[in-house]
Structure formats: C-alpha cells, structure tokens
Amino acid sequence: MVRLITHNLLACHAKNCTQTKGFPLAFNDVRVETKEAEFNADFLKSFYERKIDWDALVGAAKQLGDTSLPLERPEMVDDDFLQLLHHVLLEIHVEEGEMICPNCKHVYKIRDGIPNMLLAEHEIG
C-alpha cells in the first residue's frame, strides 16, 4: 500500500541524491483507491508532531487530487483537523503509477500497491 503516510517517509536513495536532496518524490500517472481505515487520534497526533513533513504532504495530496489540507502547518490540533489528516494519510491508496525523484529524476514504479525502490548496481550510492 502506498499511502501518503509512507510516501512522506520515502526519499530517493540513488547515488547523486545526498542527505537533503531527493525528497519528496513526485507522483506521476497514478491510479488511486480510497479505502476506509480505523481512526486513532493518539496515533495521528503523535505521528503529526514527530514525523510529518508538512509541505511534502500537502504537495503529494494535491498531486492525488486532494486539496483539503491547509497550506500552512496548523499549530492547533483539533478533532476536525485530525479527521482530515486521517483521511489524507491513511485512506488514499496509490495502487499503480510511479514516483519520480525531484533531483535525479529516477523513476520508482508502483505496482499492486507496492513501490519498487530497488536500484541497479551502478545507481547505488
């Protein structure tokens, strides 16, 4: 399942993409499905505070046709916001398509909901 929660943690790892480059990967030519997931406020809150790159999430959601998130990272985390976050992070599944590195343009394919992030020998850093 490539959900946006996972996409937010994936970066290009080809050899010319250093610590700061190669993130976020851009979606292209995707097929998306929406599947309901169980809501857990504590998980979302803690994940949001600890790990989410906000700009990457807003951008990726927009590429998948979802513009429900505010452009600025909200300071106030209320229940309405967590519901929005829940849907965007956990309920949108990219089943087919590709993710392209913004730096080196490496293309990572997604098939059957699984991203293939393998690199060829000469691409490994």
């Binding site: 996972t6 943690l9 994936l10 970066a11 393998l118």
Partner: peptide
C-alpha cells in the same frame, strides 16, 4: 516496500 535493507527510508 521492495528494497534492500532500509534503503529509501
């Protein structure tokens, strides 16, 4: 994710 060890994470 199909990758070697922790790769893209």
């Amino acid at each position: 994710v199909v990758t070697s060890l922790i790769g893209p994470f």
